[in-house]
C-alpha cells in the first residue's frame, strides 16, 4: 500500500477541475435548496445546458450560422448561449412548477432534467448534439488563452502533493476565480433584503405573501441565479475534458451535489465548497485505496475484485449520506439550533 501517493492523488483532486465543477454546481444548488428551500432535483440539467450551450455553439451552430467568425468570438458566443440557456431553462422549469409543493417540485425537476439529458443523447439529434458520444473540440480557444498566461498544454506542474497538467491548472485558475466570485455574489445577496425574502420563503411562503412580496417572482429569480451558477459549472466541466457527454449529467450528479451541500451545511456561504471538497476527497481516497488493496491482492478477489471497487465506494457514500442526514442534518459546520427549530 502506497498511502502517500494515494493521499497525494486525492489531495490533488480535492483542488482540481472536477472539484470545481461540483463546487460551482453546489453553490448554485445552495441558492435553491439551502436559502430558498426549493427542492430542485434537476441541477444537472443546468450544468448540462451550460456545457452544451458552449459546445454546440462552437461545434454545431457557429459553422452553420456565422461561418466567417473568428474562433475567439465564437467561443464567447458559446459562453453567452450557455448562460442564456440556463436562464431559459430556469424560466421553462420554474414558471410551471414553482407553484408546486416541495416534493412535487422534486419530481418535476428530476423529470425535466432527464428529458434534457435524453434529448441531448438521442441518436435522432446526433447530427447536432453528437448523440451519446457528445461533442468535443470546443476548448481550443480557451486553451490558447491559457498559453498566453504560460499554461502550456503539455506542461506538468507539481508542488508538494499537488500534480497538475498545464491544461488543468489553467482551468483551475479560471474555476477558482469563478468560485470566489459566485461566493461573493451569494454572500452579498444573502445578507441583503433580497436574501431575507428568499430565506423567509424557505420558512413559510404564505407568510411572505401576506406581507406583500411576490413569492413566485423571488423563487424564479433564485432559480435563475442558482441555475446560471450551475451553467458556470458546465463550462468548467466542458473545458476541463474538452468534451461534453450527456450521461455525465445524470440524476446521480444532482444527488451528489445534494450530498455536498448538506455535508458542508446548507444555507452557508462556504458550505457547498467545503462539502464538495470533503466529498470529493473521500471519493477519490476511497476509490484509490480500495483499488490498490484489491489489485495488490491484500483483499482477495472473492471479497473485492477490481470491478467491485466502484460499487463498494458508492455503497459507502450512500451509507454516509444516510448517516449524515440522520445524525447531523445541519452538516459539518451548520448550526444545530437552526435545524432543531425545523418546523416542517
Amino acid at each position: 500500500m502506497d498511502f502517500v501517493s494515494i493521499f497525494n492523488a486525492a489531495v490533488t483532486e480535492m483542488f482540481g477541475p472536477t472539484l470545481l465543477v461540483y463546487a460551482l454546481a453546489a453553490i448554485g444548488l445552495n441558492v435553491h435548496f439551502g436559502y430558498t428551500g426549493m427542492l430542485n432535483f434537476g441541477q444537472a440539467a443546468f450544468v448540462a445546458v451550460g456545457a452544451y450551450g458552449l459546445a454546440l455553439m462552437v461545434v454545431t451552430f457557429a459553422p452553420m450560422w456565422f461561418p466567417g467568425l473568428a474562433a475567439g468570438a465564437v467561443f464567447w458566443l458559446g459562453i453567452l448561449l450557455g448562460l442564456i440557456g440556463a436562464v431559459v431553462l430556469a424560466l421553462l422549469l420554474g414558471v410551471p412548477t414553482l407553484r408546486l409543493r416541495a416534493d412535487y417540485l422534486a419530481i418535476a425537476t428530476i423529470s425535466a432534467a432527464e428529458i434534457i439529458r435524453r434529448v441531448f443523447r438521442s441518436s435522432t439529434l446526433r447530427e447536432w448534439t453528437g448523440g451519446s458520444d457528445g461533442r468535443s473540440g470546443f476548448a481550443d480557444v480557451f486553451r490558447e488563452y491559457g498559453m498566453v498566461f504560460g499554461f502550456d498544454r503539455g506542461a506538468r506542474f507539481s508542488w508538494g502533493p499537488f500534480f497538475y497538467t498545464g491544461t488543468q491548472l489553467w482551468v483551475m485558475v479560471v474555476g477558482w476565480i469563478l468560485v470566489g466570485l459566485t461566493m461573493l455574489v451569494v454572500w452579498l445577496a444573502m445578507r441583503s433584503p433580497w436574501g431575507r425574502v428568499l430565506k423567509a420563503i424557505r420558512e413559510d411562503e404564505d407568510a411572505v405573501r401576506s406581507l406583500g412580496k411576490n413569492v413566485f417572482s423571488y423563487k424564479l429569480q433564485a432559480l435563475i441565479l442558482g441555475g446560471v451558477i450551475g451553467a458556470l459549472a458546465g463550462f468548467i466541466s466542458g473545458l476541463t475534458t474538452g468534451t461534453v457527454i450527456p450521461d455525465t449529467y445524470s440524476p446521480q450528479f444532482t444527488f451528489f451535489v445534494y450530498a455536498m451541500v448538506i455535508l458542508g451545511g446548507a444555507a452557508r456561504v462556504f458550505g457547498p465548497l467545503v462539502g464538495a471538497m470533503i466529498f470529493w476527497f473521500m471519493f477519490q481516497f476511497l476509490t484509490q485505496a480500495l483499488r490498490q488493496l484489491s489489485v495488490q491482492g491484500i483483499l482477495p478477489p472473492g471479497v473485492l475484485d477490481p470491478t467491485q471497487v466502484g460499487p463498494i465506494v458508492f455503497v459507502l457514500l450512500g451509507a454516509g449520506i444516510i448517516a449524515l442526514l440522520i445524525f447531523r442534518p445541519q452538516g459539518i459546520f451548520g448550526d444545530r439550533r437552526e435545524i432543531s427549530l425545523d418546523v416542517r
Binding site: 450530498a259 450512500g318 451509507a319 444516510i322 416542517r344
Partner: peptide
C-alpha cells in the same frame, strides 16, 4: 423531517443499487 427522509431515500437507493 420528510424532506430529510426523501434525501435519505436517495442515499438508500445508491447504497442498495451498489
Amino acid at each position: 423531517g420528510i424532506i430529510a427522509m426523501m434525501i435519505i431515500s436517495i442515499g438508500a437507493a445508491l447504497l442498495l443499487r451498489n
